[in-house]
Design a protein around this nucleic acid. Sequence first.
DNA 1: CCTGAAAAATTATTCGC
DNA 2: GCGAATAATTTTTCAGG
Lengths: 169, 169
Amino acid sequence: MGRSVARTTVRSGIFRMTQLDPIDRRILEILVADARIPLTELARAVGLSKTPVAQRLKRLEESGIITGYRAILSPLKLGLTHVTYVEISMSDTRQKALEEFNAAVRLIPEVEECYMIAGGYDYQLKIRSRDMAHFRQVMAERISTLPYITSTSSYVAMEAVVEQNWTAI
Amino acid sequence: MGRSVARTTVRSGIFRMTQLDPIDRRILEILVADARIPLTELARAVGLSKTPVAQRLKRLEESGIITGYRAILSPLKLGLTHVTYVEISMSDTRQKALEEFNAAVRLIPEVEECYMIAGGYDYQLKIRSRDMAHFRQVMAERISTLPYITSTSSYVAMEAVVEQNWTAI
DNA sequence: CCTGAAAAATTATTCGC
DNA sequence: GCGAATAATTTTTCAGG
């Protein structure tokens, strides 16, 4: 079969910051760029035979370094290019309130990212939507009704300069 | 073969916001959760035979909706859990300056995300690093030397509540 | 811990309906 | 779009260094 999707270019230089075995690191770099590469090709690319590469791969998966394999989609083609960051301040930052908030946030499909932040506000959400109208709807119906919110500030993204995607929680 | 990686759970409700054919949407949902599912299984999951599913898949790939397939890694296991958002203000926001800045940002592996923002500041960067020391090094050596910067503010993430990953530029 | 080749299993493609 | 037959690819195993 000739795979009809080009290998995604991934800026994987970050892996150099890691204390992995160099061959494991190379395996990860290749797999992050092309999750469907056959073992045969992968082995050739790292300069070993299939047996040790299969072992290494299995170890990387079972140790949880590789958490899965995903298709990567084009937001442009899906009509989901509108990105907004929402900063949220909380009225209650005790553990129970935060956990309640976290659980509620995780139910909103438009939330692509949510971090608790140290500093001026409490949470930062990245919202992906079709357009401004869709974003406003998400804000009105899902975000502003989250528990313990006191205020929000929204910042609309005008251009995506870098969007990297190889991490999982 | 028993694949030893569990299918990643992906909150793919966002695809409902899309005007795709329901079967194509289902195919995407499955592939975003498990890029390595065999055609046979995929066909069974969507309730069609292999032939039409192979055609649909090819169409989704060739139309650019699916841009690639990636392994997803654990930042925790890699020791890359330190996330910081950096807001940047620019001294020059003319097109040429912005393009120069964009090109320079794309060379920094620790930059996981970079958007041009409408509002109080000009860019927001998401930096992934090993720890605070590593982050400070990135700031000192890579970020603060970017062209046309006037000021930066950094916000450290204390907890990852949602990290979604299915998009590509 | 790695090699190389044989064997086994799985997966994709084709084609008539 | 279906299903079976065919073809191709891929993974696993194993003897040997």
